[in-house]
Amino acid sequence: MHERTRVFLGVDVGSISTKGVIINNENEVLSSDYIWTEGNPIEATKQLIRSLQSGLDDGVAVTAVGVTGSARKLVGAMLGAQVTKNEITAHAVGTLSRYPQARTILEIGGQDSKLILLDGGVVVDYAMNTLCAAGTGAFLSSQAKRLGVRVEDMGAIALTSQSPSKIAARCTVFAESDMIHKAQTGHKKEDLIAGLCHAVAANYLNNLAKGKRLREPVVFQGGVSKNAGVVRAFEEETGFEILVDPNSHLMGAVGAAILAKEAGEESEFDFHITDVFFSTVAHECEGCSNRCEVVSFLKDGEVMDLWGNRCPKGAAVRHAADCAQRER
């Protein structure tokens, strides 16, 4: 039993999907999965862990865990992660393990999009969308629903288009009304879908990439990179060859796993975590008029972590203890 191979778990809990990988010392993916978060990161993570475990043989031991994504704090506490990293760093590290020469990373996820510029294997600049979800996966899925196609099929349909419709790309709301208008004047469905893919690419380039110089090699990742229509749209808009890794949707998780591997702290991860009862209790602290929304994180009714409070006011901490009592 001592000679089990050390492997590393990386989890990326996004707003829409939860991704996980287990990598070996050579950064190769041994087991991976991609599931919907459905507004419940704790459940999604449990399901993910179960599925990753089933893809693994007995001769390995997970010795470090890295977590990224918008629910990283919660899931990091849940998994007892060695590393909890922001998405930008995780994505850059993940991509560099596959494309060490990459200069530009385009990343489009469910709710946000990022642009990362690299030079000599180091991030030198980045941008993230701010106020608006235009040009993200959420936009594509809502339009897919409207058109009655599955979001997974959009790419293939878009590629059959001979003349993509021109759809206003500036804003999701306008893009939507523009698309409805085009549909009512008789544009074919594949042309509309191809037009939407172009709108996503154009929106991305006009917002995030504004004022930034993109250089080749360009790597495209995140859930939307699975959409071949958007990939083609990017190629046409930029004139560059766009590289898409077979694991392009998992790069954040791969990066988190690599960061965990390199963290230098190791302790064996217990897969039984899926049997543990985790819960969170949110509560508005009344210590001052800031009214911090304090979240206590409980493991089998025991307070593990507490966040959201801006000051060390005792009220929040005491409350957490009370919650623990009540849950028991």
Partner: peptide, 13 residues
């Protein structure tokens, strides 16, 4: 998130 990524970036650079 942005600040964290920024300081990571500077340190890695």
């Amino acid at each position: 998130t942005r600040i964290e990524a920024f300081s990571d970036m500077l340190a890695m650079k």
